[in-house]
Every structure is written in structure tokens, then in C-alpha cells.
Amino acid sequence: MTAIELKGVSKKFRRHSERPPITTLKSYLLRDLWRHRKPTEGVNWALKDVDLKVEKGMTLGIIGRNGAGKSTLLKLIGRILRPDKGTVTVQGKVASIIELGAGFHPELTGRENVMINGIVLGLSKSEIKARLDEIVDFSELQDRIDDPVRTYSTGMYMRLGFSVAVHVDPDILLLDEVLAVGDAGFTRKCMGRMKHFKRMGRTIILVSHNLATIRTWCDEATWLHEGTLRMSRSPMDVVDAYLAAINGADAALAEPAAGGLAR
């Protein structure tokens, strides 16, 4: 069964530097003076004609350089963005963990924020009440859970956010570089939770720069390059090809320098 299907998906972004949007009254009044500019010149395609199919229960890793469109792809699947062309079809409840602790309020306590964050991520009130103890235990913040979140360290904040996120229990989990939070012990716990997800037959999409994570965790990997899918195959192959390309680029950079030295 297909969990996620993207057909010919393109997403463009306006480049603000080239064609200023109307953000102030002055620019609104002056807009006619700019009319001679071509409106298309400031458009950037973040994704171009992407086709992707993810089977239910599969863990897909997405790799690529900064700005390749990885996060945009994740946001399109999570319905945060709408595609400009093509269609995105998603079967099941999606939880997008693109940022930990979305909606946390610094003045409120950890416990209150768990309530808010859980509901924001799609849990019902009774579900979150039932899981509250489990979430607090998982975060290892029992002593501090009734303190305002602003008094937490960054690591504690992330741990609480992650604990809520992994207890949302969606059909499809979208993770953007958030696995590497907390100390080694906590990371191991997160990995255990991911294993549990996989066993339950959940679909996971994972964006990561950690190639080892991609290799060990994913059933399939996809390499995004400048908004297009360069390769979709087994994680081993894709990671190898990606590394080869990076090494190739390094070599290309290194060569003229070496030549210069020889002379």
C-alpha cells in the first residue's frame, strides 16, 4: 500500500531581493513604477518535477546538500506548503517533527507545554493525558517538569520536545534532523523508540546529514540535488554515490590548486 505519492511536484519561491513584494504602503503606492520589471526573474524553483512513492511501513532517508530542497519536500508532504505544480497524496495521520517544541511558551511549565505541544501535533486531550506520565518519564525531566520552560537548558528543552514528538504515534512521521538531541544515553533511547515505530509498521521519512544514520535506519534513500531527485535506491548505493560526488567535487577543486603549486 502506498502511504505517500508525489507526482510531478514543483515548488517555487520568490526571491525577495529581486522583486520586492508589497510589504509596505509605500511599496504599494510605488508598485506601478516597477511594472517594467519582468515578474518571473525573481522565481527560484526549490523543487522541480519530483516523483516519489513511499510504501507503507517503509523508512525513507533523504540526503542532499544545504538548499537542495529537502525541508521543502518534507513540508509539502506535511501540508505546511502547497505545491505549485503536481499533486501530493498522503494516506494516514502525519506528524511533522520539523522543529522540536513547536508552540512552547517560555513562561509556562513543562507539563503545560506538553499539553499544548501534544495537541498542536495532533493528539486529542484524553490521549495526551493518558500519555503524560510516559512522556515525562521519557524526557527524564521529572524534577523540573513543573518549572517554567524558560529555565530549561537547550538540551532539556529539546528532550521535552522530542519526548512529546515520539509519543504522538502517527501513521507517518516526518523527521528533519532532530534525532541528534541530548546526550548519548538519550540518543540511544530515541533510537529505541524509532525501532518501535518501525516494528509497528509506521512510515518514516528522515532528513539527515548523518550518513551513518541513513545507512543503518533506512530501507531506501533518496538524493536530492538542486531541487531534483538524482537517485532513489538502496541506502548503501545512494550514500556511496553521494559521497563519490562530494569527493569528486573536492578533487575538482583541489586539482587546479595542485597544478598551480607544481608550476
Binding site: G103, H105, E107, L108, E112, M115, I116, I119, V120, S124, K125, P148
Partner: peptide
């Protein structure tokens, strides 16, 4: 509605907290 409720509560609680 649960979301609206919880966000309203967030506003009310945070406003005079402290």
C-alpha cells in the same frame, strides 16, 4: 476545538504568569 481551547488557555495563563 481542542487546539483553539488549549491555545486560548496558553494566552490566558501566560499573560499574568509571574
Amino acid at each position: 476545538r481542542a487546539l483553539v481551547q488549549v491555545l486560548i488557555l496558553r494566552e490566558l495563563k501566560a499573560r499574568y504568569r509571574g
